[in-house]
């Protein structure tokens, strides 16, 4: 064994030691394996990456959002100027803000695709209904995040889009006015409005988003993605069992027919063959 081989085996030993040490004390290796690896069906496997894509884009939002906070000033005098500074003067500012802006746009599109995939594959059915509900909560949170982020630029575009959005909300029966006054921080758009949108966009909604993402992932791991091999095996077994029972019932029925040839209720309680029965009677 040459020198390179010796180094290689020593490194392998050392890393194995570190990994074992961590595993023994935290169980992190098993957790990571459990978290990262998930059996998915071969057919349409790429569609199962839409959820991960959503998570990736949300992570990007968190990271670039934290970066933007180092320059953004949430006051009506300075908001637009600070965004302009980020965009024009801060090193890579246009890139960071561009990623925040575009990944927010893509996020909504990818969420739409993700929902469509779950909807059309029937992945929301038992026992995964709650995960659909949690997913809808996440969707609503992301929509409100997008809405509140729009105003923070404090330009004409964001300003009027927010005015229109709040007018739409004001049509809500009973609570419309109060909700809008809560968002406005008064009865007209002003400095309080920007502060409130900032607080919602930067603190409240991301803080609310995080635990729901955790629940979403936990429920996903608990039940696995819909259509996993395991599930198919189980369902196929159930299907075969049903077919076997059906055949067995039919066999019993045939025997019964001979026995009760001139009887009235030779078909017993078997609903499966009720159709046949009625055909023959008519």
């Amino acid at each position: 064994m040459g020198m390179i081989g010796r180094v290689r085996s020593q490194t392998a030993d050392a890393s194995k030691f570190v990994v074992d040490w961590m595993e023994h004390r935290t169980g992190i290796v098993t957790l990571t394996e459990h978290f990262l690896y998930e059996p998915v069906p071969k057919r349409g496997a790429w569609l199962y990456t839409l959820g991960s894509a959503t998570l990736f884009l949300i992570t990007l939002q968190f990271l670039t959002g934290i970066l933007l906070l180092f320059y953004y000033v949430p006051s009506i005098e300075d908001a637009w100027n600070s965004v302009y500074y980020i965009q024009e003067e801060a090193y890579f500012g246009a890139l960071i803000r561009g990623i925040h802006y575009w990944s927010a746009n893509f996020l909504l599109a990818v969420i739409g695709l993700h929902m469509a995939q779950v909807f059309f594959s029937g992945g929301y059915k038992a026992p995964r209904e709650l995960n659909w509900v949690v997913g809808v909560i996440l969707l609503l949170l992301v929509i409100v995040l997008a809405f509140t982020g729009y105003l923070l630029r404090w330009d004409q575009d964001g300003f009027w889009a927010s005015v229109v959005g709040m007018k739409i909300g004001s049509y809500t029966p009973f609570v419309g006015g109060a909700t809008i006054h809560f968002l406005l921080g008064g009865d007209v758009v002003g400095p309080a409005t920007l502060s409130r949108f900032f607080a919602l966009h930067v603190w409240l909604l991301p803080a609310a988003l995080a635990p729901f993402i955790g629940i979403h992932l936990y429920l996903l791991r608990r039940h696995g993605v819909f259509g996993s091999e395991f599930e198919y095996t189980e369902r196929l077994a159930k299907l075969h069992e049903n077919q076997r029972l059906e055949e067995y019932a039919r066999y019993e029925l045939d025997e019964g027919e001979e026995e009760y040839e001139d009887g009235e209720n030779g078909y017993g309680d078997d609903y499966g063959d009720r159709g046949d029965y009625e055909d023959r009677r008519s």
Binding site: A178, G185, G186, D187, V188, G190, A192
Partner: peptide, 13 residues
């Protein structure tokens, strides 16, 4: 603000 506007009928303007 909701209490000021909707309950007390005040305005910021």
């Amino acid at each position: 603000p909701v209490i000021d506007v909707d309950v007390l009928g005040e305005t910021d303007v």
